[in-house]
Design a protein around this nucleic acid. Structure first.
Lengths: 152, 152
DNA sequence: TATTGTTATACTCTATAACTATA
DNA sequence: TATAGTTATAGAGTATAACAATA
């Protein structure tokens, strides 16, 4: 039958060659996570990038675009239209920096706090779905390892 | 000075909010890995997707496009132009399947074996670079956890 | 009717180059 | 001269819809 291909694939999840490379696995799992996350955020018409910006501003209250770019991993030039969208929806405000007139002091508008709570719930659900195959201990292990791999 | 932003970012790697979500971390690290990988493959004018196809065919000798799609995570419709490119460069051949005339039996050409060796070296270098912040034990841990998260 | 491969298309993400205004 | 923000643009990745050939 023509189910063969699909079955083999489901059981082995591809040949050994691809499973041997941690880098390839990270890229694949990352895409998977991204897809699940994007799907969840879609209910609120938000991008993964937009979400990252909102989360950071939720803690810092105000940041330059340069900082936001570094913290989210988004390139500064690609951050521009992202902030434009957020600003048009009234979720974010580009103020002026008193110490350097080149900089914009980006901050959340008061309206966003309710949204952030809902987003946390959506995010949590997506993560639970993704990490379902792992035990609690394994989830903890994984979470401990990943931050070390993030660097500029 | 205006180095402050960059320094803070490098030290904390972004605020706690983003570090709290395993899903977000996986997406970020996955992008990082992807970027490093793509950069390495670029020296041979290859895409990450093309690389995945080559690796699988290197083990299976022959596979249907449907199978390749499943094993690489590439959508079947997007696989078409990828195979076109590989075929035009003489790296891959679309043969006919004797048991099902709808299927193409995709296989490597003999010329590719030398290329695959060089690719393994490039891949290894990229992974070493990415995983540099981890100890050998941690690398092993991470590699063990990731395959569990891959599923159709 | 379901499946394999295909096309056309569109939308997002990422990256290259160059500009402006400020420092 | 260097930096913060911006624009235009092009490439790759991904997704929606529909089709022809074959099972």
């Amino acid at each position: 039958m023509n189910h063969d291909d699909a079955n083999i694939c489901r059981l082995m999840k591809g040949p050994q060659a691809l499973l041997a490379s941690t880098g390839y696995l990270l890229a694949r799992v990352g895409s998977e996570s991204r897809r699940l996350f994007v799907q969840a955020l879609d209910e609120r018409d938000l991008t993964l990038a937009q979400y990252g910006v909102l989360m950071i501003l939720g803690e810092l209250k105000s940041a330059s675009q340069r900082y936001l770019a570094g913290a989210t991993g988004i390139d500064p030039r690609n951050l521009v239209p992202i902030l434009d969208a957020l600003e048009n929806r009234g979720l974010v405000r580009r103020g002026s920096d008193s110490t350097d007139r080149r900089r914009h002091a980006v901050a959340l508008t008061p309206a966003v706090t309710a949204l952030l709570v809902k987003l946390s719930r959506l995010r949590a659900q997506a993560v639970v779905e993704l990490l379902k195959p792992l035990s609690a201990t394994q989830r903890h292990q994984l979470h401990g390892l990943l931050p070390r791999l993030l660097r500029t």
